[in-house]
Design a protein around this nucleic acid. Structure first.
Length: 754
DNA sequence: CATTCGCGGGG
DNA sequence: GTGTACGCGAATG
């Protein structure tokens, strides 16, 4: 039989690969492919003979033959033994045994996730079109009928069911929350007070709608594990999968806290489904950034199946793209040693220390400033300067290409990293342009996909310097930042030659100034920099005015990352202000945004000062609402990321106290999870009274009016400090205004304080 | 005052 | 299957 359709999902199951094909007839076809995994071994002939004997005796091996493949580091063709392994169940045990041979034999392609390795080998694309010849549910032949690089593709009409917790997701089922299921306009609320209802209702709904995608909020952390628990307790089977055979679900109950991007993150244990996708939008970084469209685009490009792509980090995606390319080019993939994290040596710190170049801007308010940014600077540098672990410090060339460090870069071979990045850079640019050109839903689709790729590009750089990355090398990382600093300085010099003053610069952005600066001359400058540096320089915008904030620690200095300004098109750009911070309560963010909205009507520096009374007015209004108890508790919720176990805190800060309150009632908060709380009485001697964790909040819990007022005052101070209004002035002014029985016109109040 | 702790950026 | 760090600012004791 022959079928054409979309490859919906792939996973190893028992000893075969299971494929779900969404046929053109609308049916979902389950097929098995008895695919065998190949690994490669290199070493002396007699050692390899020994290995063969060992594997045969243990029954691991289906077959073996000699073949020639390319060594990743040298690019040389080498003789290796191709080993066809028996079945998947044996593999984990096998890899432990192989470690014993490692002093004599080098193994390749041995630690690639099986579904990915299957897709690389067959050239198949998750969610892509395919053609398959099959018999009795088994694949005879399968071929891709699409390229992962297509920009326009049609997806099968996926039926989506949404399941979420209404009420507080931190609390156990039925304690102040319910389960809401929605599908195709149908909505059902399940009351978990009656536990047996949960599996019964879910089963009924899944059978009735047979969704392809189950999109949840807190599905991984709460809904699925709780439902599974109830199902076991009540002895009512819960049928979530389409797979009808025994499903091997490894209940990774603890979840993982891990260190990434300089902070602790938490991933709850994952509950993927077999035969349909479960995506927990609250447990998926990429979903939050780029939606299902972005995830699907990445799954297609990287050949990481959709469910895994949704849960994984961008680093895994980029690695898979590199693995796919290496695989298809016949390059042996080195076994990644899972070295435990080591302490950083002084040398490491020295190297890492010299990252991007950062200047110090002159504080205060400015006019005639343009901001120009290098587009995708680091990935472009990797692509154009051929920076890759195997090309930096290659053995064959001697050219001292890398600025400062003087490392060689290979001129004979293009590296794996640049080969992978180039098409991604092109594709992202194309999607970005299309998202600008096309409006509506399609434009949004392009936008999400280009943002997904943006992430892949950003992280490809970090990955180069990551000690445990398969294709990482610290010298390559170093080379990228060295070129980056060179290009930033080059841009500065070209600008100065054209009469611009450099006001500020961070890594890949420059703020430049000139009296009466025009868009035309800045664009001309960008053109020249693009030509000279080999990296696209874009005009981010021209500011009507912009402010660089002083340091709060040393008020005479400014800080690089706290600034805001108004572009000519009326948009505000701001960094480091309260409203940008995730640890600020909504009330403060909104108040500051309202103040900025007022300031966005100031056309130039002279227009800024007359807007100040109106900003005062917004501030006073917010403070009054706080005083009069007109602020709803959710507006006051602060949530911060827990960086360690609640009991490990040395200092009882508000976050630790809130986490401890939750622990006390049996709600586990893991490092990397956010703890939501309201400040009740920050200065209370009784620590218990300082905060209240959100799920434990009752109507009698008030809030710390003084503390929240202070946050508002600081938010206002950030916007007004260039004109000398610091928190003391603002605070006095607020007190003064509040004391007046009937405030006269704001103008007179304003005069009084000056 | 020293120390501890959390956040940012990209779009 | 784990993207780097460092500087800033606030809070604690």
């Amino acid at each position: 039989m022959e079928t054409e359709g979309w490859l919906f999902d792939v996973y190893p199951w028992q000893s075969t690969m299971v494929l779900w094909i969404y046929g053109d007839d609308g049916g979902m076809l389950r097929l098995e492919d008895p695919y065998r995994h190949h690994i490669y071994a290199r070493g002396r002939r007699e050692d390899l003979e020994g290995l063969l004997g060992f594997l045969r005796k243990r029954g691991f091996l289906l077959g073996s033959r000699w073949t020639r493949k390319q060594d990743f580091w040298s690019g040389q063709e080498v003789d290796v033994l191709d080993l066809e392994m028996r079945d998947y169940g044996h593999l984990p045990g096998l890899f432990r045994l192989l470690a014993g041979f490692e002093d004599r034999i080098t193994f390749y392609n041995s630690d690639i996730p099986l579904a990915q390795s299957y897709l690389y080998e067959k050239g198949l694309v998750p969610t892509g079109r395919c053609w398959v010849e099959h018999e009795d549910g088994r694949v005879l032949r399968i071929e891709a009928r699409c390229s992962p690089w297509e920009i326009e593709y049609i997806l099968p009409p996926l039926r989506t069911m949404e399941i979420r917790i209404e009420g507080n997701p931190l609390l156990p089922f039925g304690r102040g929350n319910t389960l809401v299921v929605e599908c195709e306009g149908y909505r059902l609320e399940i009351d978990p007070q009656l536990p047996s209802e949960v599996p019964l209702q879910i089963n009924t709904l899944l059978e009735r709608f047979d969704p392809d995608v189950i999109l949840t909020e807190h599905g991984d952390s709460h809904i699925v594990p709780s439902s599974v628990r109830i199902s076991r307790r009540e002895k009512i089977p819960l049928i979530l999968d389409r797979e009808t055979g025994p499903v091997h679900r490894i209940p990774d109950l603890r979840g993982r806290s891990y260190f990434s991007y300089g902070r602790i993150l938490y991933h709850s244990p994952a509950y993927p489904l077999f035969g349909r996708w479960h995506i927990d939008r609250t447990n998926s970084f990429l979903f939050g950034e780029s939606g299902l469209e972005g995830i699907i685009d990445l799954a297609r490009l990287s050949k990481v199946p959709v469910q895994r792509a949704a849960r994984t980090s961008p680093g895994t995606i980029i690695t898979s793209m590199q693995l796919d390319r290496a695989f298809s080019e016949g390059i042996l993939i080195p076994w990644r040693k899972g070295e435990p994290e080591k302490f950083k040596t002084a040398w490491d710190l020295l190297v890492v220390d010299k990252g991007g170049l950062v200047f110090q801007p002159p504080q205060g308010i400015h006019e005639d400033i343009a901001e120009i940014d290098f587009a995708s600077m680091y990935p472009t540098i990797m692509a154009v300067h051929n920076i890759s672990p195997e090309t930096v410090l290659c053995a064959c060339c001697s050219n001292s290409r890398v600025p400062e460090a003087g490392y060689n870069i290979c001129e004979r071979r293009e590296g794996l990293v640049p080969r992978t990045l180039k098409p991604i850079l092109r594709r992202r640019l194309m999607l970005k342009e299309m998202s600008k050109r096309v409006g509506g839903e399609r434009g949004e689709d392009y936008r999400r996909r280009h943002i997904a790729l943006k992430w892949i590009l950003v992280t490809s750089f970090g990955y180069l310097g990551y000690r445990n990355a398969r294709f990482g090398r610290i010298e390559a990382h170093e080379a990228v930042t060295a070129f980056g600093r060179e290009k930033l300085l080059q841009a500065k010099e070209i600008g100065e030659k054209r009469g611009f003053r450099l006001i500020h610069a961070i890594t890949d952005s420059l703020w430049i100034s000139k009296d009466g600066l025009t868009e035309g001359e800045v664009l001309a400058l960008c053109e020249e920099i693009t030509r000279e540096a080999g990296v696209r320089m874009n005009l981010e915008g021209i500011y009507r005015w912009m402010v660089f904030l002083p340091s709060r620690v040393k008020p005479e200095l400014s800080v690089a990352n706290r600034y805001f300004g108004l572009f000519e098109d009326g948009e505000i750009k701001a960094r480091g202000l309260a409203f940008r911070r995730s640890d600020m309560p909504p009330m403060v963010k909104e108040a500051q945004l309202r103040m900025l909205e007022v300031l966005s009507r100031a056309k130039d520096v002279d227009g800024y000062r007359p807007k100040i009374p109106e900003v005062f007015e917004v501030l006073l209004d917010s403070v009054l609402k706080l005083k009069n108890g007109e602020v709803e508790p959710p507006e006051l919720v602060i949530s911060k990321t827990l960086s360690q176990d609640p009991s490990d805190y040395k200092v009882d800060n508000l976050t630790a106290l809130a986490a401890q309150q939750l622990e006390d009632v049996g709600v586990r908060i893991h490092p990397g999870e956010r703890v939501p709380y309201v400040i009740r009485d920050a200065r209370s001697r009784v620590k218990e009274d300082r905060v209240r964790a959100v799920p434990l909040m009752g109507p009698e819990d008030g809030y710390d009016e003084e503390k929240y007022t202070e946050l508002l005052l600081k938010a206002a101070e950030e916007l007004l400090i260039p004109f000398g209004y610091d928190i003391n002035v603002l605070s006095r002014w607020v007190d003064f205004s509040l004391k007046r029985e009937k405030a006269e016109s704001l103008d007179s109040v304003y005069k009084n304080i000056l």
